[in-house]
Amino acid sequence: MPLALLFAAMVVYASLYPFEGWRWPGVAPLDFLTAPLSRYWSGFDVLANLVGYIPLGFLLALGLWRSGWGRWAWVVAAAGPATLSLAMELFQNFLPSRVPSNLDWMLNAAGAGLGAGVAWGLARLGVLRRWTQFRSDWFNPHAHGGLVLVALWPFSLLYPASVPFGLGQVWERLEALLVEAFSGTPFLQWVPVHGDGSGALGPLAQALCVALGLLAPLLTGYADVRTVPRRLAFLVLLLSVGLGATGLSSALTYGPEHAWAWVNASALLGLGLAAVAGLAALWLPSRVCHVGLILALAVSLSLLNRVPSIAYLDQSLEAWEQGRFIRFHGLSQWLGWLWPFAALVFGVRAAIRAPALR
């Protein structure tokens, strides 16, 4: 259910972005339902609106089914997202940059119904029960927030970073906002700014950031995975997914021919250090994994936010941030910025709440 609610929030964000210029449309908000179908659509538009709601219907059906809703789970999982889509199209009347569409709503509703139908079919085949058994065999009973963070981590890697796997480099943007906000006030001198000595990270520091960037999700998962052999399988899977997501991000940013341009001596050293540290941590208790997560994030965020961004990366980010569908209306950049901070908060809470080493 947490993943379903999170995906619903992502849908709301993407549907109403950029949340600017609200005004009264001058027509009845529901007129779009009876309007003729738009002639201006592409195959990508149809696919995006259909596929975009399939995960929501599927995740909602799965969460409701596990909560004991029975047959009503499939009905609510299909009707709920369709109602949400109708509300989003309704609100788009009030945004000058968005256009409500009855075709979009029908495709969204069909996608949600398809997702709920897939979940229903898997339940009828017994797949969901086997997944429940698999989950209980692989993960601790309290595994919820950590699994959500691990599931979101590959998507956060799609936003380009100056250091591979170096998420959370936000200080320069935050600094610019603070300087603008306090300009002309006595509080401006309180804003910490980069000094003349701040520069690019050296090769070893970059390797350390790569290793720590991989250790953070790895330790998050270790805290929930039950046995050493399963942790080893998780290590291999996470490294593989991380490499694929970073390669895809590089291909989307600089072009397919540059998908692996980020692989250099520092990146390879960092990958090796992460693999060795991951092997050494296979036997760590859950609380120690959470403490290690906190330390890894604290050091990596400190290093990454002390250096300025790279000029050519800034130019690429401008193109990235102007692409509506690649960046999912800015959502990928928020994941890239905020994932490590969310993981840090989760790690602190988990370490405090743990009654004993386990």
Rank of each mutant, 00 (worst) to 15 (best):
A4R: 01
A4V: 02
F7D: 09
A8H: 07
A14Q: 15
L16N: 01
P18D: 10
G21Y: 02
G21S: 08
P25V: 00
L30Q: 01
D31L: 10
L33N: 05
A35I: 02
P36T: 03
P36M: 11
P36Y: 08
S42P: 03
A48E: 05
L50E: 00
L50H: 00
V51W: 01
P55N: 04
L56I: 02
L56D: 14
F58D: 00
L60E: 11
L62N: 12
L64Q: 12
R66N: 15
V75Q: 04
A77H: 10
A79F: 12
A82H: 04
L84W: 03
A87W: 09
E89T: 10
F94G: 04
P96E: 07
V99I: 12
S101R: 00
N102H: 04
L103Y: 03
D104Q: 11
G111M: 08
A112V: 14
A112C: 10
G117I: 15
L122Q: 06
A123H: 13
V127T: 09
Q133W: 12
Q133K: 14
F134N: 10
D137M: 11
A143W: 06
H144P: 01
G145T: 15
G145C: 05
V150W: 06
F155Y: 13
L158S: 04
Y159K: 12
P160V: 03
A161L: 12
A161W: 02
S162D: 15
F165G: 07
G166M: 07
Q169T: 08
V170L: 10
L177E: 01
A181R: 13
S183G: 10
W190I: 05
W190C: 12
H194L: 15
H194N: 11
S198I: 10
L201Y: 02
P203R: 10
A205Q: 15
A205K: 04
L219R: 15
P229H: 03
L235Q: 08
L243P: 02
G247A: 14
G255A: 06
E257A: 13
S266K: 08
L268K: 07
G270A: 07
G272F: 09
G272S: 08
A274M: 06
A277K: 01
A280Q: 06
L282G: 01
I294P: 00
L295N: 00
A296M: 04
A296Y: 00
A298V: 10
A298P: 05
S300H: 10
L301M: 07
S302E: 06
L304M: 00
N305T: 01
N305R: 05
V307E: 13
L313T: 01
Q315S: 14
E321C: 04
Q322T: 14
G323N: 15
R324G: 05
F328I: 14
G330Q: 10
L331N: 04
L331V: 13
L331Q: 06
W334H: 12
W334S: 11
W334Q: 14
W337I: 01
V345P: 05
G347K: 11
R358F: 06
